[in-house]
Design a protein around this nucleic acid. Structure first.
Length: 283
DNA sequence: ATGGGGGCCTGCCGGC
DNA sequence: TGCCGGCAGGCCCCCA
């Protein structure tokens, strides 16, 4: 389920068990996720210490003291579970192996980090820390929506003349990195822009307004995830995604959440993906 | 070059 | 209860 805010929440949850910590043993239970794992992945990680834990778009990046960076992508169904560590005052005992536990990191601290991914749309790779753009997945990414290079001038330029619907454009990771189906729907709702509107036809003023809206939607979700993370005390140690209240996503047929709007949420399919919006106040 | 659709996987949910 | 179709928050690849 992970879009940028969920990935950032997971990254923050991993910090105490990864940063400055050392891998004792890495267990790899299958040869691949979406793609084959890099050669000797387990041996290249074991014995290294994590210098820093970063996020780029929906990728989690652990810089190892070996000069390599461990890249983790959660895909659609990837989950991370932490046991054997005291987190937020709660100690989680190791649990029995689950179906789809594909990679297990045992740290010298005693913490165990399990990557579980039923659909296997996730990915792991080892890349050069010094030359991360050698990784094609990272090279093509557009600006971070919460970073300095994402601003009004950029977005106006990036959308100019685009004949694709604004919904598709905002999902395009080359234009903006980290948005997924939910937060695009939510941002367009707040902006009052129809997902069907062609990107190049959205007025400049509305594109400019979209920038802080996108930032706010993401920041609120991260804040919400962060607070649930501080409190989380699930017995199995899973980094739970917070329950978040969406205004349009998955609300087909419900009344529009905008004050004073009498419309109702409609679901359409664009590029094979559901879009939720209020036809009355999103134009 | 650019945009749309198919495909990758498994699990879950609603309808019959 | 069981089966089946549809759907899922990502992303690459191919084709027009």
């Amino acid at each position: 389920m992970p879009e940028l805010p969920e990935v950032e929440t997971v990254r923050r949850g991993l910090e105490p068990v990864f940063v400055k910590q050392t891998f004792e043993k890495v267990t790899v239970n299958r040869p691949d996720l979406r793609w084959p794992f890099p050669d000797n992945m387990a041996d290249r990680i074991a014995g290294t210490t994590v210098n820093a834990l970063r996020r780029r778009s929906k990728y989690i990046l652990a810089d190892l003291d070996s000069g390599e960076t461990l890249l983790i992508h959660l895909g659609m169904s990837g989950r991370i579970q932490i046991t054997g560590a005291t987190l937020g005052g709660f100690y989680h005992d190791h649990v029995a192996a689950q179906k789809h536990d594909h990679v297990i990191f045992d740290m010298t601290s005693g913490a165990r980090i399990v990557f579980n991914d039923p659909r296997r749309f996730g990915a792991m790779d080892l890349i050069s820390t010094a030359d991360q753009n050698a990784q094609l997945l990272l090279r093509k990414l557009g600006p971070e929506p919460l970073g300095n290079t994402f601003h009004a001038d950029y977005l106006v330029e990036a959308l100019a003349g685009k004949k694709t619907p604004i919904k598709s454009a905002l999902l395009d990771q080359r234009i903006i990195a980290g948005l997924g189906n939910i937060y695009v729907c939510e941002a367009l709702f707040r902006a009052g822009i129809s997902p069907e509107k062609l990107a190049g036809k959205v007025s400049k003023a509305r594109v400019i307004a979209l920038v802080p809206i996108i930032r706010n939607v993401l920041e609120e979700a991260i804040e919400s995830g962060g607070s649930s993370l501080r409190d989380y005390r699930q017995a199995d140690g899973e980094l739970g995604y917070f329950q978040h209240s969406f205004q349009v996503y998955d609300r087909e047929g419900k009344e529009c959440a905008k004050a004073g709007c009498s419309g109702s949420v409609k679901r359409i399919v664009q590029s094979g993906r559901s879009s939720f919006f209020c036809p009355k106040c999103q134009r």
